[in-house]
Design a protein around this nucleic acid. Structure first.
Length: 342
DNA sequence: AATTTCCACAACCGCGGGCTC
DNA sequence: CGAGCCCGCGGTTGTGGAAAT
């Protein structure tokens, strides 16, 4: 059975919104709210628009506190990190960037960020022997050596081939594998970064069923906890400073927090995965590892650390206290809520 | 200066999920 | 339990301005 149209297509205006329409919509919503019924709203507001169009216009443009304009390096980093983690779930990513809309981020990714990350490196520079010489880099990159397009890697951890710039060798990582730092040249931003490359050597058909997050490898100064890899920034500093007195604060979407009755310790009960991002913001990211979104695959790829089963808050705190990180994001189980800041 | 091409952003569209009846 | 409806999401397209020729 076909779906009934949401509005009378013949009688609604399409295309760009005029200032008058914007004013009508804004005035109506500020006065009455959307009434939780966008379909009925246009008529009430005196607009010849589809309800969905009104909703989109409000959410993406007219809503208060919408941020327009360039994305900061921090925002770039968050987008890249989350995209690598959860894929193109723009609404979730947008939730982490106050003032940005999912549409904004999606457009930004498609038009700029993706190209920065994937498309601006001459193919010749992708060869391992050229990877040393840069002061800036992509945040992460498609590792397919045969294409500059951001095509999915479709490679499982076991099929990844990692390049070690320190000795010009390739490795297939194991659980205890340490990530390798490879300086990489591209015109991406002015931030200092280095990258880890992972070249797929096998592409089993069944892996096309894997989620999008597995298509990319994070970098930007990644280091495995407990690993051997070293990271350095372009200004020559090595990011190994210790930070011992940090207090971990966290907050669940439903209100639970570090002072609440429910300790996050009890919420984990599974492996936690994390990586050490040693760029200027020193971010640490973590997730419990039920395999959702491929966290466990990340861990086994060698780019992510894996805590023991039932690794709890205290252990994570300890981990953080001995790392150089000052931020920490935790995703609770399958809900993928952002629950902790640090 | 005119035309074409490229690019960024806004907007549209279809679908899945959830809710209600 | 299933049909109908709406919301929200993500992919795609349209459009206007900038840059290139």
């Amino acid at each position: 059975m076909g779906r009934a149209p949401c509005c009378d297509k013949a009688n609604v205006k399409k295309g760009s919104w005029s200032p008058e329409e914007d004013a009508k919509l804004k005035e109506y919503i500020e006065k009455h709210g959307s009434g939780a019924n966008w379909i009925a709203l246009p008529q009430k507001a005196g607009l010849r628009r589809c309800g969905k169009s009104c909703r989109l216009r409000w959410l993406n443009y007219l809503r208060p506190n919408i941020k327009h304009g360039d994305f900061s390096d921090d925002e770039d980093r968050i987008i890249c990190t989350l995209f690598a983690s959860i894929g193109s779930r723009w609404s979730i990513i947008a939730a982490q960037l106050p003032g940005r809309t999912d549409n904004d981020i999606k457009n930004y990714w498609n038009t700029k960020l993706k190209k920065k990350l994937f498309g601006m490196v001459p193919q010749s520079q992708r060869k391992p022997h050229n990877l040393h010489h840069a002061s800036s880099s992509s945040l992460f990159q498609s590792s397919s050596p045969s294409s500059l397009s951001p095509s999915p890697l479709f490679s499982s951890p076991s099929s990844r081939l990692f390049y070690n710039c320190s000795n010009n060798t390739y490795h297939t990582p194991t659980r205890s594998f340490s990530g390798f730092e490879v300086s990489y040249s591209s015109s991406f931003s002015n931030s200092s970064a280095s990258c880890i490359t992972a070249a797929p050597v096998l592409q089993p058909l069944q892996e096309s069923l894997l989620g999008p997050m597995q298509h990319y490898q994070l970098q930007d100064g990644l280091q495995m906890f407990g690993g051997e890899a070293t990271c350095s920034s372009s200004d020559g500093s090595s990011g190994n400073q210790m930070s011992q007195s940090k207090e971990l604060e966290y907050e669940f979407a439903d209100g639970r927090g570090s002072n609440g009755a429910n300790n996050v310790d009890q919420q984990i009960g599974m492996h936690s995965y994390f990586y050490n991002d040693r760029d200027e913001n020193q971010e640490l990211m973590a997730s419990n590892g039920d395999g959702v979104n491929g966290w466990s695959e990340k861990a086994s790829s060698g780019l992510w650390g894996e805590t023991p089963l039932n690794y709890g808050l205290e252990e994570i705190k300890q981990l953080i206290s001995t790392s150089s990180c000052n931020s920490f994001i935790f995703y609770e189980n399958k809900a993928e809520e952002k629950v902790m800041y640090y």
